[in-house]
Write a protein that binds this DNA or RNA. Sequence first.
DNA 1: CTGTTAGCGCATTCAG
DNA 2: CTGAATGCGCTAACAG
Lengths: 352, 352
Amino acid sequence: MTIKEIAQLAGVSSAAVSRYLNGGYVSDEKKEQIRKVIEETGYQPSAQARILRTKKACLAGVVVPKINSESVSRITAGIEQVLSRRGYQMLLASTDNDPDKEITYLKLFENYPVDGIILIGTVISAEHRKFLKNSKVPVVVVGQYTKYANCIYHDDYGAGKAMGRLAAAELKKAWTEIGESCGKIAYIGVTKEDKAVGVSREDGFRSGLKSEGILLEPDYVKTAEFTMDSGYHAALELLEQKQDIRIISCATDTIAAGAIEAILVYSRQNVPRSAADSGTRMQYVLNNSGIRVTGFGDNQFLKAVTGGIPTVHFGYKTSGIRGAELLLDVVERGEKIPVEIKLGFRLADREN
Amino acid sequence: MTIKEIAQLAGVSSAAVSRYLNGGYVSDEKKEQIRKVIEETGYQPSAQARILRTKKACLAGVVVPKINSESVSRITAGIEQVLSRRGYQMLLASTDNDPDKEITYLKLFENYPVDGIILIGTVISAEHRKFLKNSKVPVVVVGQYTKYANCIYHDDYGAGKAMGRLAAAELKKAWTEIGESCGKIAYIGVTKEDKAVGVSREDGFRSGLKSEGILLEPDYVKTAEFTMDSGYHAALELLEQKQDIRIISCATDTIAAGAIEAILVYSRQNVPRSAADSGTRMQYVLNNSGIRVTGFGDNQFLKAVTGGIPTVHFGYKTSGIRGAELLLDVVERGEKIPVEIKLGFRLADREN
DNA sequence: CTGTTAGCGCATTCAG
DNA sequence: CTGAATGCGCTAACAG
């Protein structure tokens, strides 16, 4: 079905049909004829061709590192909220943490009918920068600082520092219970290629510890991927190598979840493996190893089933909202002056 | 940058450039000229226009109910795997469980450059059926049975039945501990509009219970959304209304997570709310209310931090794989005969 | 108000 | 091997 065929069937010109579709001048009489034909045929105009003409898709493409993530979903929720309110739709491309795929999808969106792109950033490589500099369509980066595009990011250093202070306080509290200096703090971070999480957050954390006179010893630091499984393995290694760990601080709540699992497994205090195991009550988790875990991100799922660990709440949804607003400002109003927005955080120390 | 400009700069015809881009006949000499110009200008052909011509996008659109879900992400992982292996890319549209948005995005994909659509289904309404019947591009439905499209779904009835049996056994075990018939079973389901989860799964569950001589009493049944929060509220209501519940079976692991939270809160056995709360050790979860929770979906996050609850493992990734294969079969080979695939399940009773 | 015309950027005939 | 010409489906002038 093309607009031409509809025009013929209705006995009008294709331009008339086009006008009918887009609210231009057309007599009530012809309007009716066209309406009828369209209804009968179920004709739907090709957005495809329309966009080729108008250069306007009312669509934004969002490149995300992974799909199954609370932080990502909060950001996209924010984006979607302002997009839909302003008549745009949102398409997602997930890269599964593969930088190559990220470039691929950015280029896909660049040459596809989207009016703008939002990149939820993790590692910003040279290729990323090159893309940002030369992109034909406006791009805004959420979650990482960059000077090559409008960006909106979180105060990871500050958050890390606050958490470092908190962790230090917890550690000292443990010392008063068990005896001075007999417990160490460990940290599970992520790749340094991720400037926000891998560098700023960790640097802040160290700084926070330091301000309380505590040092993070190299043997007590591991690097993990952004997955629970990876956090599990890193934590297990730590536990097996060092017997005096009192706190495991993790760069994300997802990693923290893996660390919790590792502690459960390691301390052999986890639930019976089979329901057939006698009449033991279903105690979901019983961790009395005394090892504490902290995270970043304020994951609701984790909070729900564990009662909550010390973590940091970032304004993910807000960053999505601001990101989309930024994007539409340049898409619709051609706003040219570059913008960088830094968002704050809130320590979430299980107060609720 | 258009192909025409490149042609001029290279001193050839636009057709030559097109051939260069698509591997047609072109002399090495001109090849070199074109290559150089393209490199200098950073020209990228408009996929947009190409597709308008060729009607081939090497792209599939996937409509998902939500982004932050382990089951959805497993399915899309399966889809992406076969898609990328066969030279396709994947675009996602999330509807946030809004049936209207679902139709909107289906239509978007229908008129945009995608070769096929995969719908991860929840409720299949009359409008959905209408769309499936008339869609210009091939559609396959994953997760729900429908006769209006190729589909691939799970044995929800069988899974429900198996879980019903298991729950019945657990209940009886509890009886022997606490005294005959003094404990009841409760169920938190979802809307009946979701045929797979809301109807089949629950029907199967009731059937499984029945085969063990146990009945699900109406007062012990609630309906929730597909969210943890909703599960929390439903479970809390149950706990407040009925004091003799021994088991809360939930239609999904996400709802189960909410139920666990509710039990923690209700039994006041959850962790201290503030780190300032004395030197209490960080015991992530301590549930000795004796109330057991079961779910469906084999959520890894839940398993990790709680040690696992009785649940059902569905082949989500497999359904994604098969779904994408089905789609490509009709996209590439014009396969016409309709296909329905039913996938099995595996009871996951915390054996690991 | 309406139809005719001319492209959007590209791939594909079809004669060279 | 190559370029000129045609049209994918649609919208935006333009002249009625």
